[in-house]
């Protein structure tokens, strides 16, 4: 499953262990959670010995999550952009629409953490942050600031 928040895409894999237990993998992290669904879109979760009540709701491609007093709105990317995403070489970062490189925030050989912004693009008057899909190392930079890039163009080589 994929969720997008502020143009950053997260891959979440969920597989049931039993009726109320799941393994969830996000990037390199794997969680085992016990869950019970409550009324009004509530969830009782047990994870790492902690108990949490959260709420969620879905509307169109939006997923609304309330947890620990904070709200998060996640988007399920549409099928086309998902296909582009999966078509790209594993671990490499490609552009999703034509645009211009506004800034490159990392250097080749640099270690980065999951979610860290690597490159900022401007496309259709929107700023798009390209973030590290997981903790890893930037192997090679393939674009420079100011460069115009095509859709699907490789921005950098990345190793988890």
């Amino acid at each position: 499953m994929q969720f997008q928040i502020n143009s950053e895409i997260f891959n979440v894999n969920i597989s049931p262990l039993s009726d109320d237990q799941f393994t969830v993998t996000i990037g390199e992290q794997t969680h085992i959670i016990r869950t019970e669904s409550l009324a009004d879109g509530g969830w009782l979760l047990q994870m790492n010995g902690q108990q949490i009540i959260a709420y969620s709701a879905a509307q169109g491609s939006e997923r609304y999550v309330f947890v620990n007093g904070e709200n998060f709105t996640l988007t399920v990317p549409d099928a086309r952009s998902t296909r582009r995403k999966t078509a790209a070489g594993a671990g490499d970062l490609t552009t999703q629409m034509p645009g211009q490189v506004v800034s490159v925030l990392v250097a080749a050989g640099e270690s980065v953490t999951r979610g860290q912004t690597l490159v900022i693009l401007e496309a259709m008057k929107m700023e798009i942050r390209v973030a590290a899909p997981s903790d890893g190392v930037v192997k090679r930079l393939l674009v420079t600031k100011g460069q115009v890039v095509e859709r699907g163009q490789l921005l950098l080589e990345f190793e988890s």
Binding site: I14, F22, L45
Partner: peptide
């Protein structure tokens, strides 16, 4: 401040969709 999305929020979103 904008809070980075925590894993727990992603887990709940995934649970929501898996239940659907």
């Amino acid at each position: 401040a904008e809070i980075p999305v925590p894993d727990i929020a992603l887990i709940i979103a995934a649970l929501t969709d898996s239940r659907n």
